[in-house]
Design a protein around this nucleic acid. Sequence first.
RNA 1: GCCGAGAUAGCUCAGUCGGUAGAGCAACUGAUUCGUAAUCAGUAGGUCGCAGGUUCGAUUCCUGUUCUCGGCACCA
Length: 639
Amino acid sequence: MSIEITFPDGNKKSFDAPPTGLEIAQGISPGLAKKAAVVRVNGELWDLSRPIDRDARFEIVTRDKPEALEVIRHDAAHVLAQAVQELYPGTQITFGPATDTGFYYDFARAEPFTEADLEKIEARMREIVKRDLPIRREVWPHDQAVAFFEKAGEKFKAEWIREGLKPGEELTIYKQGDHWLDMCLGPHLPSTGKLGTAFKLTKVGGAYWRGDANNAQLQRIYGIAFATEQELKDYLRMLEEAEKRDHRKLGPQLDLFHQQEEAVGSVFWHAKGYTLWRTVENYIRRRLDATGYVEVKTPQLIDRVLWEKTGHWENYRQNMFIAESEDRVLAVKPMNCPGHVLIYKQGIKSYRDLPLRIAEFGSCHRNEPSGALHGLMRVRAFTQDDAHIFCTPEQINSETVAFCDLLMSVYKDFGFEDVRVKFSDRPPQRAGSDEVWDKAEGALKSAIEAAGLPYTMNPGEGAFYGPKLEFVLRDAIGRDWQCGTLQVDFVLPERLEAEYVAEDNSRQRPVMLHRAVLGSLERFLGILIEQHAGAFPLWLSPLQAMVAPIVSDADGYAGEVAEALKAAGLRADTDLRNEKINYKIREHSVHKVPVIAVVGRKEAEEKTVTLRRLGSEQQQTLPLAEAVKVLAAEAAPPR
RNA sequence: GCCGAGAUAGCUCAGUCGGUAGAGCAACUGAUUCGUAAUCAGUAGGUCGCAGGUUCGAUUCCUGUUCUCGGCACCA
């Protein structure tokens, strides 16, 4: 039988017997064969050593390609598993995929792995790489695989095959050397030596079998892996950089906020941090004022009866804070929507009133699981830049487009240009009929298309009352943060019986769009701190200019300068301490003050100031009036 | 919530094989008036997370607990 191979450039070659990818590569050039990681056969990634038993489109995937990197990482997971089983006999293997930066593998073992174990395991991995064990693919029948893993004491693997695969189905086994194997879809590199050395084990953690908290707890070992040493180094440097920017460190260091045991999951905002907060809040308020929103404030405590109507009592009771008073059970509001519906329902609404955009800087409380709390990023008390747009079904499109415009422009003002959109559709547990969901998903889909933003699907991740768009922004060092959201809700207006009078005098249900740009103020400020590493742009900086005299003779003039800056709307202060100018410069630089205005005898005489910007050693001497004008213009918040 | 690790001065950390703790920085006081990233000297600061237990004696050993950190699960 003859096999015809078609190369990407259209050339064809015939073989008498099924050739392997490696043989074809060698036929082209030994150098190429060396660089090859896997091959693409009719669009599918195959092992280099797998005989190609059919006519096929064929392409060699070299080590430097993204698809190859995933194979490298997956190989690393298998080498990790082998190393662990060699070092710790009796440990059961489960699964270990590639991740965005490396790999992990989940193990079942009574003893916990320690940090010290990681070093040993990593050393053994390097040894296995050095052994350069051939990796071979085999196809096994279902029952043979079950029998094998059961005999080997691999209960998790056996269970997976028994319950996850059909009896007739063949499955693939990858052998690493003669003594170790794992069930795997592949593909893999031809031998462990091809993995290279650019990997590192990073942490141990818990994980649940099949990702379900009701199942056995496994131990997950994480690693990072790259195609080259340089990429590994770069990534480690990025991690270091991220650690330096950690808002949980910078927050207290820069005197922005702190957290403590007596108010777990809540934030004590200090004067500087709250200045940052107000700057952000006021900016958003101006943007909302300019785009047709009204701002309201709703009660913190609302009777459980309301939450029963909305469905929150049923769905989220265990995460709500409860208060009791005079035989009433009240819930601290976990969200603002019902309150906004109650405001909407005051008075009869006409179609002429729609769309009605009700906004609130809504303070909410949710009793998040203790293990979920994380600095400002996940708290129990937070404030959303929330709004609900009550509109007709026809208005969903235009409102979505307007919201996307607003959101993108706000993100840009904060220095985020790279924004991705995810579309989350119906979750397994939900309110409302399939018909309503069809309608809501359809409306949202056509709306986001009208907005012209590309999006990816996030199946089953919608809210219980409706599908949602999630807006994810990428920060300065490449991390992603979900912030904004837009959710279509046909359910809540129904449950709380909101209505409007249509043109034909009939009573209709409005659609409710839940939307937030920043998400939670707390979280967004945390992201801002990390984005800027605490060195905020001038308009956001809590303290914008520090006036530092060189000699005490200039103290009086320093006061004048600070007053002039404050009169122009800048946040300025003086540092009149009897310290050397070097000391003051250092201290205010460490505290990330964007502008230090130095005044000495010369400036006091000439009525000038010498400005020094954070991150630059350059000095600029300007007449006071001009300096004030320049700084005031620069410090103005975006409109 | 689950698995694992941790908690010593405001911060970063050292230390005590059981005999109530130490450094640097910060703070405070004094001297220094010095032109762009740390002036010098001195002082003060800790029921060693909290509660029990063992012990003549516990910051140290044991138990429980709270919180933090790393994962997982959760995230209206």
